[in-house]
Amino acid sequence: MNKYRKFVGIFLGIELILIAISNVLFFIMAHINEPEIRKTQEKTGTIYKVIYTQTDHKTLILMNVGMGIMFLLSVFLVMYIGKKILKPFHRMMSLTEELAKGNLSVPIKAEKSKFFGRFLWGMDMLRDNLESSREKELELQKEKKTLILSLAHDLKTPLSAIRLYNKALSENLYDTPEKRAQVYAGIDKNVTEMEGYVTEIMAASRENFLNLTVEMGEVYLSSVMEYINAYYTDKLSNLHTTFEVESYLDCLLCGDSNRLIEVLQNIMENALKYGDGKCITISFTTEEDCCLITVKNTGCTLKEDELPHLFDSFYRGSNVGNAKGSGLGLYICRQLMHMMDGEIFAEIKENEFLASVVIHKV
């Protein structure tokens, strides 16, 4: 802001100097004009008139009024820019830095400025979501650690029993077949108990670790496809990838509009990332109670025996190459579709990969 104030001072100062110079030049030009001699012929004879140029005060006043108005407009303009644009922007300079540092607790002050009001509102929503996500993550980590510690403690009991049984067997303390059978049964019971604890740990590590939510409602197929079509038409055109959306009958679907778009975007991104970039096609099949949306891309190098694992969390196929990813895209798609009472599956046909989404109609 200090630099801007300095610039404003110089700019307005130059305007005032130009106004002053204009006035000085006007007066100089008015006084250096020599008297003008005019000759007129009348009936009585020839008359010579000497005409002296006088300063036109009206012109001077109008000139100064015009320049004064321009100067006032300049003052208003620079003040408006400083107050409505530069001042809010100056306050926003540290926002992204604070968010990057993790300072999420202090709300971002809203601005009524039409230039940055919506932006600041969005930044505050982002801050609030980041803070909420961090709190949920910390709470989830706390719950997981508590569960793991509890299960680890519970595992000690059967492990101790198995160790005692093993020591007794090694020292031949059980000399009859009946006693040894009881020991074997006890070991089997403790092993079964440990397997249960391990299953609980695995379930806890997988259970909704992404905190996915779905808001069920009604959505027209056309509104979803209009968004997908608008989003990818230009993008794929720039990549020189043929993009085709086959004709379809519009229908009312039962699900979450935003989540369904997210699923289709995940599939489209996979088609871009792992296909050959030649052609991507979206086709439709409708049944009595459901709609099938299929995304097909050319250049599939995935093996058939990998298809059952594609929707597992953190699984990445043999065709990933150097492409970056977490192995969660299709896993998230399946979780979202199940939460919308739908399904998603994949298949390979003639070197083409097909991912199909099944969603119920209303």
Score class of each variant (00 low, 15 high):
residue 2 N to M: 10
residue 13 G to V: 04
residue 13 G to D: 07
residue 13 G to F: 09
residue 16 L to K: 05
residue 21 I to K: 02
residue 24 V to T: 03
residue 26 F to V: 00
residue 27 F to Q: 03
residue 38 R to L: 09
residue 46 T to G: 01
residue 47 I to Q: 11
residue 54 Q to S: 13
residue 55 T to P: 09
residue 58 K to Q: 12
residue 63 M to A: 12
residue 68 G to T: 00
residue 76 F to E: 05
residue 77 L to H: 00
residue 82 G to N: 10
residue 100 A to W: 09
residue 104 L to M: 06
residue 106 V to Y: 13
residue 121 W to R: 06
residue 125 M to V: 11
residue 130 L to E: 03
residue 131 E to Y: 14
residue 134 R to P: 07
residue 136 K to G: 07
residue 136 K to R: 10
residue 138 L to G: 05
residue 139 E to N: 13
residue 139 E to K: 13
residue 141 Q to W: 03
residue 142 K to L: 10
residue 142 K to S: 15
residue 143 E to W: 05
residue 144 K to Y: 09
residue 148 I to P: 04
residue 148 I to K: 08
residue 162 I to D: 00
residue 176 T to R: 01
residue 178 E to V: 11
residue 180 R to P: 06
residue 180 R to Y: 04
residue 187 I to F: 07
residue 188 D to C: 08
residue 190 N to S: 13
residue 196 G to F: 11
residue 197 Y to L: 10
residue 203 A to V: 05
residue 232 Y to I: 00
residue 237 S to C: 06
residue 238 N to M: 05
residue 241 T to M: 01
residue 248 Y to E: 04
residue 249 L to Q: 14
residue 252 L to S: 14
residue 261 I to R: 02
residue 276 D to I: 01
residue 278 K to N: 13
residue 281 T to I: 11
residue 289 D to C: 05
residue 290 C to I: 11
residue 295 V to K: 01
residue 298 T to S: 12
residue 306 E to V: 03
residue 310 L to W: 11
residue 313 S to E: 09
residue 316 R to I: 03
residue 317 G to K: 02
residue 318 S to R: 01
residue 321 G to E: 04
residue 324 K to L: 11
residue 330 L to R: 05
residue 332 I to W: 01
residue 337 M to T: 06
residue 342 G to S: 03
residue 345 F to T: 00
residue 346 A to H: 04
residue 350 E to Y: 11
residue 352 E to V: 04
residue 354 L to N: 02
residue 359 I to M: 05
